[in-house]
Design a protein around this nucleic acid. Sequence first.
DNA 1: CTGTGTAAAGCAAACGGTTCCATAAGGAGG
DNA 2: CCTCCTTATGGAACCGTTTGCTTTACACAG
Lengths: 345, 345
Amino acid sequence: MTVTIKDVAKRAGVSPSTVSRVLSGHPRISLETSRKVKVIMEEMGYHPNMMAKSLVSKTTNSICIILPKPAEELFSNLFFMELIRGIVTQASRSGYDVLISSGANEKEELEAASRLLKGRRVDGVILLYSRKDDAVIDFLENNGYPFVLVGRSDRYENILSVDNDNVMAAYDATNHLISMGHERIGFVSGPQNLIVSRDRLEGYRKAMQNSELEMRPEWIVEGEFLQDSGYRAMSFFMNLPNRPTALVVVDDMVAFGVLRGLNELKYSVPEDLAIVSFNNIPLSELSNPPISSIDIGIYHLGYTASQVLIQGIQKAAIGAGYTNRFVIPHRLIIRESSMHSLNKK
Amino acid sequence: MTVTIKDVAKRAGVSPSTVSRVLSGHPRISLETSRKVKVIMEEMGYHPNMMAKSLVSKTTNSICIILPKPAEELFSNLFFMELIRGIVTQASRSGYDVLISSGANEKEELEAASRLLKGRRVDGVILLYSRKDDAVIDFLENNGYPFVLVGRSDRYENILSVDNDNVMAAYDATNHLISMGHERIGFVSGPQNLIVSRDRLEGYRKAMQNSELEMRPEWIVEGEFLQDSGYRAMSFFMNLPNRPTALVVVDDMVAFGVLRGLNELKYSVPEDLAIVSFNNIPLSELSNPPISSIDIGIYHLGYTASQVLIQGIQKAAIGAGYTNRFVIPHRLIIRESSMHSLNKK
DNA sequence: CTGTGTAAAGCAAACGGTTCCATAAGGAGG
DNA sequence: CCTCCTTATGGAACCGTTTGCTTTACACAG
């Protein structure tokens, strides 16, 4: 049936241990034996059984991505694809396999994490979101499992995390609009239980305060990271008596929704309403008009997360790491949706 | 350290085999013992070690998605995200984990497949592409590994596959344009080593022949499944002396490229050039104008592929399946990009 | 009271590797 | 010539489960 290490050993006239040593490049194996065994392995089409290997080494050489919320909603956001792409690419380079898993709610995520880690199926996990008071993080932290958070935690200081400086990013985005002469600037936010939403809102506030601009409560609308939220926010804003001339939008998908609504109502962008959003997914430049967006280096975020996690796993035995918070730089990509200056008027 | 089946056994005063049987719901375990053991397992936080389990059962309860080409290019296509979403959702429902893997070329894919299957790390694989003369398919087929192809093979009749009727889909798309009064219709194709490209081209040809329309060789342009290809095809077509009035485009991303070019040159769609494309990715309706596209049920394609594969794995022992080719229905979604009739003129 | 059938649980051998410890051979040093 | 290293290899235990075969303990029929 399957050819095992014992079959190879018998055929080569050596012991299984010797074959194992040849496989792992043990120093105390004569060149002659090593060559002979290798030839036989080739001949017999031997492949080590990963399960057996994992069983004794207590290591699986695989990591897992945990997607929060039903995959249905999530995946529709191009954002995650970019992230996964970065993760898979890096992991593959490090010789790790990537398992992807998702749950319908926090409880299911927790079950998945627990099953995979306690069941020793993966060596560590990457969390793609950070909520306030996240139970999954608690679980991982309390049990000492290797993990890295893409985002930041509001409660743990020393966990591995890869994130942008979202406060600063929002600050920059808002300032860009201000520099274009806008004074009435609205903000379309994401769910407030997500740290990223909070951070971006804070950056917006800082920029507004810094320029001593008025901040009306009705200029801040909260929604989901979905197109529809943008669409709804747009109708709300456009019906306001004293409506904003520009919008900072928390996510490109949401901005697409805003844009769709604006197009339907025949408003023009950026003349009637300037827009800057976040994430710069590959389609931001394809919309009509192309959207100014903060590029947060999504791919890089994923790539780094994977790298940091795998290093963490491998060095776990040696001792804890040095840096634990990695900040990926962002940069503002200015496109048509904000290229209209009010300064001259 | 970790709590094993033996620890539970000892604490419960029974043998490991008994605990194992409790776990698998063996009939010959007294209710009393079963309850006692379950309580102890709970108390001690026992979780079965999947590696050990896999080792003896020779089953991993996981499947693998093999992405061809560098993930870099591939993933940029939203298409794959939808597919993966369908696969992961279904697999998760069946209690399977999904591993994702990719290679830079056919050789690397083969290595990945070989490593994962021979190394007994996954029970089966899903192939997301079918090339002509694919070496990975040969490998899987010759070694009797369970796999399913999303697409179809040109050489094997009886392998499991999930596909659309792409010939018919292209036929429908082309006919739609014909019914709108177009007679000079061009075709932007994908790489000809991909079966899907060939099938769609054939459908276009059939429709044109069927309506006895002229087919000029220069009206068929071959490119990649990327925006740039569309952009280039567009410039080519628009510089033609006798240019087409409508285009059938092999993929939405490519159509976006066409659209971008057309917008830049201030042509209007559909008046100057009508467009119909394929796949209907979530963003097709967001472009300007929204693109008519053949919805091929990407999510459904993935979902079915996963289902078929897992059934195949589980029934492998019992005997081969019945149907082996599954066809997912398509339907044309008409949007603005083709809503301009030439008939009245 | 013995023989037999049955339910419940235990024993031990796998599964395919890794690795610590032991051993054999050969060479060097005394 | 004996002892002691060193180097190359073998032996066996173990990683955490599953499972076929036994064993044990009754209950009941003869």
